[in-house]
Design a protein around this nucleic acid. Structure first.
Lengths: 144, 144
DNA sequence: TGTTGTTAGTTACAAAATCAACTGTTAATG
DNA sequence: CATTAACAGTTGATTTTGTAACTAACAACA
């Protein structure tokens, strides 16, 4: 395409990252949304608890960098669906430990395998070394 | 951290991409938002017109993959601020050509240099070959 | 030419994200 | 201890997004 300007939007990292993230998230969402009608925020909370086990909302926030109100609401919805339970920390009553129920763990296991498949599909678009480099660089970017 | 599960969320590409995209977009937004109080959608439309020149909303949609309602609203806001003008195509009266005004071009030029600086800052976190690989792979992912 | 389909863009309404203010609790310090 | 600050989490108001239905214009083709 003819450009009026030598700055290339397609090479601007934040833009490029967004395009790639949006593309892959939407494609992945299309795969899982029908099974559980789950939001991205709920999906994330579920995965955090499924992978790392019992933890507080605060810890989920530190790991995921999601805002606490998003987490609060996602937790409420997952609780409604009986996917998790809360337990007050008696030593520090501000804290609430969240833990998946049997149904929550089952949902996680199912979505986990969907995720693994999808990740493999994406990875197949690259050479193995490339995927490794990509993950490494993204990792680095994510914690700048 | 102790994991209960060998699946690693930090290596799951859609998640990783989102984290990296969110991180870099927010950081970039903090730099430019005070100058123009502009939304990400508006920023994108402005850049498309600044870089590629006069085009229709539809073309912006094809390039950016933003949904047409987002574009429609971003265009309306940019027009309110007198950053762009619309011109009806007389041959096909459904089409409207969008073009930056002087003020719009000035805003673009300013934000463009902010973007170039920020991109350089990000790139500095990597070796030059790494950045090239990263851009290539993201490019590829974005158009899967 | 008239009917049906398609396209560009907008709008109305519902869903979700953001921000600020709030509750209840613990920590810090005089 | 009493008061103030800090923290975990929730709620409410506002803003932004997403979905679907809509308008206006063009296209195809019987």
């Amino acid at each position: 395409m003819t450009k009026k300007d030598d700055f290339d939007l397609q090479d601007f990292l934040p833009y490029l990252l967004n395009q790639a993230a949006e593309e892959s998230s939407l494609a992945f969402q299309n795969i899982y949304k029908d099974r559980y009608g789950m939001l991205r925020t709920e999906w994330r909370v579920l995965f955090h608890l499924g992978i790392y086990g019992r933890m507080t909302a605060k810890e989920i926030g530190e790991r995921s960098k999601m805002h606490k109100t998003k987490i609060s609401r996602a937790v409420a919805r997952l609780e409604e669906r009986r996917f998790l339970t809360r337990e007050r920390d008696e030593a520090d009553r501000r804290l609430e430990y969240l833990e998946l129920t049997g149904a929550g763990r089952a949902a996680y296991q199912e979505l986990r395998s969907v995720a693994i498949d999808y990740d493999a599909t994406l990875a197949r678009a690259f050479a193995p070394e490339e995927v490794a480099v990509l993950r490494k660089l993204l990792h680095h970017l994510a914690k700048l």
